[in-house]
């Protein structure tokens, strides 16, 4: 039997997230329970990677866990505030890519090829030579390159492969061996599962291995590529998660919105929602005490109109002829 990968978020983070690691932090449905644990364990020197890095990035920057970011969108930099200040002062080094670029770079990392061409960015100011090694950056000449295609002479931009040291992701379900299944739109997560050296997945449900093997079309990564599985209902809260719960916009505005407003506001959030609880189940407990069951229930998915019929994968055991 393969070894079980099932463990707590504390153990998974302690064992598989090292100071200085580059970390894929998710796009829109974020493994917030794992991000909180990284903050709780005071990891440092991390690089945050994702097509668009939302409040999970802000959290890692404000906590001093991450000092580099590679992304197409840094939500914390949208308005004046501490994240912009950190970028100006050099405390946070950044490389601006795009959603397509990060997705393709993860794909290249997963495929084991050194770079991948794109026809995006052509004609834009991103490619101006004076911006390649900009004072706020951390990749220098390795950010990207341009060339003419050897086959048709057309210009292309070469994006380097991204191989994050670790990826933290949330999924609908997995078995104890780390075979992970997801459904719904994937953002850039699909290739992060395959690009990262170490994959930590939190899941809404742990299922028996037979459930996975009976419906393998939903599997996005097999267990042999996964370092740790953490059973974590509401692990993506306050982001939404397909088939389980919607974004908790009220919490995002009133509570998580504080993290980008300044050090004091961030520390208040950290004290209450990260350091003040031991793990995600205590976090949910605190949420229920503060806002009540109905606040959580309001976000839950309700049944859609037409359930998908079962897909059958088995056939008659014997063929009615001989070769």
């Amino acid at each position: 039997m393969p070894e079980t990968k099932l463990m707590s978020e504390r153990e998974a983070t302690a064992r598989f997230v090292d100071d200085g690691d580059s970390v894929y932090v998710g796009y829109t449905s974020v493994a917030y329970g794992l991000i909180h644990e990284i903050v709780r364990q005071r990891k440092t020197g991390l690089e945050a990677i994702g097509g668009s890095v939302g409040p999970q990035g802000t959290m890692l920057f404000m906590a001093g866990c991450a000092d580099r970011v590679s992304s197409g969108y840094i939500a914390g930099a949208l308005r004046p505030g501490p994240v912009q200040d950190m970028m100006d002062s050099g405390d946070l080094r950044y490389e601006d890519y795009s959603n397509q670029a990060i997705a393709l770079m993860l794909m290249a990392g997963a495929l084991g090829i050194p770079f991948i061409p794109t026809r995006s960015f052509l004609g834009s100011d991103y490619l101006k030579p004076e911006y390649q090694e900009h004072p706020g950056g951390h990749r220098g000449a390795n950010k990207w390159a341009t060339m003419e295609s050897p086959f048709d002479g057309q210009p292309v931009v070469l994006l380097p492969a991204l191989i994050p040291d670790v990826a933290v992701l949330h999924a609908q379900r997995a078995d104890r061996f780390g075979n992970v299944q997801t459904w719904g739109h994937q953002g850039d997560a699909r290739w992060a599962f395959w690009a990262a050296k170490k994959v930590i997945v939190s899941v809404e449900d742990i299922v028996e291995p037979e459930v996975i093997r009976e419906d393998p079309g939903r599997t996005v990564v097999p267990g042999f590529r996964v370092a740790a599985v953490v059973h974590m209902p509401f692990g993506a809260h306050p982001s939404g998660f397909v088939g389980h719960y919607d974004f908790d916009y009220a919490f995002m505005a009133a509570e998580m919105g504080r993290i980008g407003r300044g050090k004091d506001e961030f520390e208040a959030f950290r004290a209450e929602w990260i350091d003040g609880v031991a793990d995600r189940s205590e976090y949910i407990q605190r949420y229920l005490e503060r806002f009540g069951q109905q606040a959580l229930d309001r976000t839950r998915a309700t049944a859609g109109p037409a359930p998908t019929p079962d897909v059958r994968y088995t056939y008659a055991p014997e063929l009615p002829f001989r070769m």
Binding site: S71, G72, Y73, S98, N99, R119, L122, S124, P135
Partner: peptide, 21 residues
Amino acid sequence: DYRAPERRLGGTGGNTEIACL
């Protein structure tokens, strides 16, 4: 100026490739 900005914005997301392609 990108190298010494007056103000950062969030970033392009997928805007660049949509405009290009």
